[in-house]
Design a protein around this nucleic acid. Structure first.
Length: 835
DNA sequence: AACATCCCTATTTTT
DNA sequence: TAGGGATGTT
């Protein structure tokens, strides 16, 4: 599908297309907060309470500026004109952003309410609020325009809803609703839903919206990507339906805002006056629509004060090397092009890394340096060399999980907190092996990301009940729960309601109400429907008096929804009930049901970030962006998995580079310890595949890597054909043997419980390790959990794979053994047992 | 309406 | 292989 959708429209062209509407009368346009705008003038101090001398004293070095390095400080103090802050991983990006805001307010350049600060996630917005509050020493109530693109979009849209064909109370559709709606449109067109899935259309429409394309602007060629050219028609029909339903989907929150700004320059001008400073977090993740939105807001034609130049005060912070969301519309190009989009822009690079030790940083830098499309940064650290990056080859995913599990246990014994360890995978199916292993080990872990709270069916159902109670015209929510739990309103009944509604052009609930007055429907469903409608009505009345949380409980109860799950004997039913309780608990944080619903439709993370103890985190690389851990495990570095084959197939070099950025994100999550691994064999769907180590493994510089055991003796094993591990055994792999790192690895590999030598350099940690990676002689053997003692020459030993034999030589942690059945082999001592 | 069976698909995922 | 969704059967 849409193979080259990214190439077709140049964002800049799209911008021009959208800007075609006249624009120029905002200069003296009357009205909105004219007076207020005047008092907002930048020369006026925001804190008139401060005397000049007080402010002057604060000027030399306000306390919030101390501790910033030179480049950070410059980024904070360069207030006027466009500024791009290229903030490498771990360089204090959020600190700069928040300090900058504090600085703007402290210097009296603008008040909190005149600053637009956008983030991508609610989490980021929350964090910024908290940190600004900390800096300013108080509440952040003064920053109403700090939020996600979407939440700010909604806020603006609600104020001017009528101008784009909505009413202020419009609802926000989630993906389910969106697809249900499209399905109906597709059915109405008598299109084969099999051949043209609604899901695909939804994605297509999303991608158009991401690029700021309204139905009339969809490129001809792309419209043909769906149903032989009906794509754009469906898009237009869909938008029309949304307006009828008084609803907007996520894309609309931005796109309709854009339309609003373009069609109503006076409204745009109002925001021009309002926003004296604009700050954008994670700029590398913006899509075209967001870019256009920002550009419109930033490019005010008339400066509010003659003292201010024409240059917009927009500051974008981001890192092109951490752009990993291209697949969902992000345009790295936005950040790459910043200085062209905003003439006169200054660029400041934050290159001082405060997170990782030198080996880790060097490894990460070297990998990302292979990307051709990047602005380029050179990260520095003052931290010590630290540990080299561990690279391990293992037999399969099971062994990988075991090895990681053992490492974690050893670290834990050495006093490391599980909270400071993470396993970052490329694809979520990889998590399973780890979960299985951790469960058997009894190792506490938590999975981050995964199916989100709000995406769970029971949560959506509960929300649908609430929504339909307060908003009877919400057809999609009605449909969702008419027959959940089953109440005899099957396909037939729903169809009947639908037809009536369509014929009369009324919402479903109203149609239902009319139908039950007639004899049209069979008695049974008719009664069920009448009961349901009566319930809606009753709940609505009760909602006027009951607190919303009690109402929610009542609804879940009386609707039979809770009972439905109680009766369900599937294993997940219990957790679903838990989730419902959690939802109600969560509602307590809101004043009203409406407030809750608004929040839920936008902020779909519950961030039940309760501290549930010391646990290892397991998550995808994508989910890890922005986080950091002392120890990071990066399993599954295999060609096809990472870089993912599909990224390569669908996006070629660009896809590879995004995968490489993902690798870079993963590597830079680690503070002290980083362990990369790859398996020779992995079950991909049904069958076992032999895997080749990822090219990214080879891109890790020799000098910063410590290979622990991975060389198969014969290159015949398909998996290793082209890797360094066998391409250049002499100076590649083997050269590591002499390094201190390698010797250290040997030491802890051979360290067992029965042995006293588990201590290791670098700090006071003790590292104990049973078993180890087990690639030997091209064959892999399951390691026994039984830990061996020391075996000397002449001792009779047993090996799980090769059987009995006698030790004939020693080499570090390896033993040469003359096996009775299979001849001489060199094996890791830890796999030997007493014979 | 409930249950069985077939068929398809299978990275990453915020809002 | 597994899970979900759609279709078919009782």
């Amino acid at each position: 599908m849409a193979p080259n959708r990214k190439q077709i429209v140049n964002p800049a062209d799209a911008a021009d297309a959208l800007q075609a509407s006249p624009d120029g009368k905002e200069a003296g346009s009357p009205g909105f907060e004219e007076g207020a705008a005047a008092s907002y003038a930048a020369s006026e101090p925001a804190r008139p309470g401060l005397s000049i001398s007080q402010r002057a004293m604060a000027r030399p070095s306000p306390s919030y500026l101390t501790g910033l390095n030179a480049e950070q400080r410059l980024a904070v103090e360069t207030l006027d004109g466009p500024l791009l802050v290229l903030a490498g991983a771990g360089t204090g990006k959020t600190r700069v952003l928040t300090t900058r805001i504090a600085h703007i307010m402290a210097t009296g350049k603008a008040r909190g309410s005149q600053i637009l600060a956008v983030t991508f996630t609610n989490k980021a917005a929350r964090e910024m609020k908290a940190r600004i509050g900390h800096l300013v020493g108080g509440a952040v109530e003064g920053m109403p325009w700090l939020g996600t693109f979407h939440s700010i979009g909604v806020k603006i849209l609600r104020r001017h809803a009528e101008l784009v064909g909505l009413k202020s109370g419009f609802t926000i559709l989630d993906t389910d609703d969106q697809i249900r709606l499209l399905k109906q449109l597709i059915e109405a067109e008598n299109l084969d839903e099999k051949r043209w899935p609604a899901r695909q259309l939804a994605q297509l429409i999303d991608s158009w919206k991401n690029r700021g394309l309204t139905p009339d602007k969809v490129p001809k060629g792309e419209a043909f990507a769906y149903a032989n050219g009906k794509g754009a028609q469906f898009y237009a029909a869909y938008q029309k339906r949304l307006k009828e339903l008084n609803a907007a989907d996520f894309g609309d929150l931005l796109l309709e805002c854009l339309r609003l700004f373009l069609e109503h320059p006076d409204v745009l001008a109002e925001y021009h006056r309002r926003f004296q400073y604009i700050l954008v977090d994670e700029y590398q993740d913006t899509n075209v629509a967001q870019y256009l939105w920002l550009r419109l807001l930033a490019q005010r034609r008339s400066a509010p004060s003659p003292l201010e130049g024409e240059l917009p005060n927009i500051c974008c912070v981001g890192d092109d090397d951490q752009s990993i969301y291209g697949w969902r519309g992000a345009e790295v190009d936005n950040i790459l092009r910043f200085d062209k989009d905003f003439p006169g822009a200054k660029v400041i690079r934050l290159e001082q890394n405060y997170r990782s030790s030198a080996h880790i940083l060097a490894a990460a830098s070297s990998v990302i340096a292979r990307n051709r499309v990047r602005l380029g940064k050179t990260l520095r650290t003052e931290a010590g060399a630290g540990e080299k990056v561990g690279v391990t080859g293992v037999w399969d995913d099971e062994e990988e999980a075991r090895v990681v599990g053992e490492d974690i246990e050893a670290l834990q014994k050495g006093g490391h907190k599980l909270n400071q360890m993470a396993i970052l995978v490329r694809a979520s199916f990889q998590m399973r092996a780890f979960e299985d292993r951790f469960v058997t080990m009894g190792l506490p872990y938590r999975v981050i990301g995964g199916p989100r709270f709000y995406e769970r069916a029971e949560i959506k159902d509960a929300i649908a009940y609430l929504e339909i109670t307060f908003n009877p015209t919400h057809d999609l929510k009605f449909e969702r729960i008419v027959n959940t739990p089953k109440r005899g309103l099957g396909e037939q009944a729903v169809k009947q309601i639908h037809e009536h509604a369509r014929a009369r052009g009324i919402p479903l609930t109203q149609a239902a109400r009319e139908i039950i007055e007639t004899e049209e429907m069979k008695p049974k469903p008719r009664k069920a429907l009448a009961d349901l409608l009566a319930q809606f009505e009753r709940w609505r009345r009760q909602g006027e008096t009951l607190p919303h949380t009690e109402l929610a409980e009542l609804i879940l109860d009386e609707s039979g929804y809770t009972a439905m799950w109680q009766a369900d004997k599937s294993p997940q039913a219990q957790s679903r009930l838990e989730n419902l309780k959690e939802l109600v608990r969560f509602m307590h944080e809101f004043e009203t049901a409406q407030g809750f619903l608004e929040h839920v439709s936008l902020v779909m993370d519950t961030d039940s970030g309760k501290d549930d103890g010391d646990r290892v985190s397991v998550m995808t690389l994508h989910a890890a962006k922005g986080l950091e851990f002392d120890t990071v495990f990066l399993p599954g570095w295999e060609e096809g998995l990472f870089p993912h084959q599909r990224a390569l197939d669908e996006n070629g070099v660009a896809g590879l580079e995004e995968e490489r950025r993902l690798a870079h994100v993963g590597l830079t999550r680690a503070r002290k310890l980083l362990k990369v691994s790859f398996a020779q064999n992995r079950r991909v769907r049904a069958l076992w595949q032999s895997q080749m180590p990822s090219r990214f493994v080879d891109e890790l510089p020799e000098a910063n890597v410590e290979v622990s055991e991975a060389r198969p003796a014969y290159g015949g094993h398909a998996g290793f054909g082209q890797s360094r591990f066998d391409r250049e055994p002499a100076n590649g792999f083997q050269s590591s043997y002499g390094t201190p790192g390698w010797q250290r690895a040997q030491k802890w590999q051979s360290t067992g419980a029965g042995q006293g030598s588990g201590t290791r350099t670098a700090g006071n940690e003790r590292w104990a390790r049973k078993g180890g990676p087990v690639t030997l002689e091209g064959e892999l053997v399951a390691s026994s959990s039984v830990v061996s003692g020391e075996f000397g020459v002449g001792e009779r030993v047993f090996h799980q794979k090769y059987g009995y034999g006698a030790v004939t030589g020693t080499d570090g942690n390896k033993r040469t053994v003359e096996f009775e059945k299979s001849g001489a082999k060199k094996v890791l001592e830890s796999f030997l047992e007493k014979g």
